[in-house]
Simulated assay, not measured.
Amino acid sequence: MQKLIFATNNTHKAEEIRSVLEGRFTITTLKEAGIDMDIPEPFDTLEENARKKAATVYHLTGISCFGEDTGLETNTLNGEPGVKSARYAGEERDFAANIEKLLDQLKGKTDRTARFRTVISLILNGAEHQFEGICEGSITVQPRGEKGFGYDPVFIPHNASRTFAEMSLPEKNQYSHRKKAMEQLIQFLITQ
């Protein structure tokens, strides 16, 4: 089974990715690979941040790997929080504060449409390949649900009536932006 290092310390993201891969690949997180660091996300695009994460891990290990960056983009707020989603309310990555800020920014707005967008940068045998997954939806007026992480309590995907935080992981994967990007990654890897 092919081993890939996932350039993250986010256990929720690793769990989502592993649920999609269904044993086809062995996924190792940074911590599991013995890499004790948080890779900075200094860029203005998801693509550049994903590339930076993968390149850092590949430089350190020489092992095929992938990095991912995800943003929640709202139409009314010109794409905010976007690439700054994890740090929307400050550098401490407090998602309760991020959600509170987002809902405050959307107060009184009638257009609550949004989308989650994930970009994965794979480095396989030294060559980079990028994949994108998008989930269209809308933002609720208040948080709902206890599952998931990040903005899941306020995001309802199109053609659903519940937030990501009200869904089980298999249910979320029916809509998930991360799953869509991972499926492209898997199809690419299968053909290699």
Rank of each mutant, 00 (worst) to 15 (best):
M1A: 08
T11I: 11
H12G: 10
K13N: 11
E16R: 09
I17D: 01
I17Q: 00
I17Y: 01
R18S: 07
R18M: 06
R18T: 08
S19P: 01
L21H: 02
G23S: 02
R24W: 00
T29I: 06
E32M: 09
A33P: 00
D38H: 05
D44W: 01
T45R: 02
T45M: 08
T45E: 07
L46V: 04
E47L: 14
A54T: 07
A54I: 08
A54F: 09
A54Y: 07
T56E: 13
T61P: 02
F66K: 08
E68A: 10
T70M: 10
L72F: 06
L72T: 10
E73W: 00
E73C: 12
T74I: 04
L77M: 03
E80C: 02
K84R: 11
K84G: 04
G90E: 04
R93Q: 14
R93P: 01
R93K: 15
A97Y: 06
N98D: 12
I99E: 11
E100L: 14
K101D: 10
K101H: 08
L103T: 09
Q105T: 06
K107T: 11
K107D: 08
K109Q: 13
T110M: 09
D111C: 09
D111N: 14
R112S: 06
T113H: 13
F116W: 12
R117T: 15
V119K: 09
S121Q: 07
L122A: 01
L122G: 00
L122K: 03
I123E: 05
I123W: 03
L124P: 01
N125K: 14
E128V: 12
E128D: 02
F131L: 06
E132N: 05
E132F: 05
C135L: 13
G137W: 13
S138R: 15
I139R: 06
I139N: 04
I139F: 07
T140I: 08
T140P: 00
V141K: 07
Q142T: 11
P143K: 07
G145S: 06
G145N: 08
K147H: 13
G148I: 12
G150P: 09
Y151F: 15
S161I: 13
S161P: 03
F164I: 14
A165L: 12
A165H: 09
A165Q: 12
L169Q: 15
L169G: 03
Y175H: 15
S176E: 06
H177C: 08
K179E: 07
K180D: 01
K180G: 03
A181E: 08
A181T: 06
M182C: 15
M182D: 02
E183D: 09
I186R: 04
I186E: 02
F188C: 02
L189D: 05
I190E: 15
I190F: 05
T191C: 07
Q192M: 09
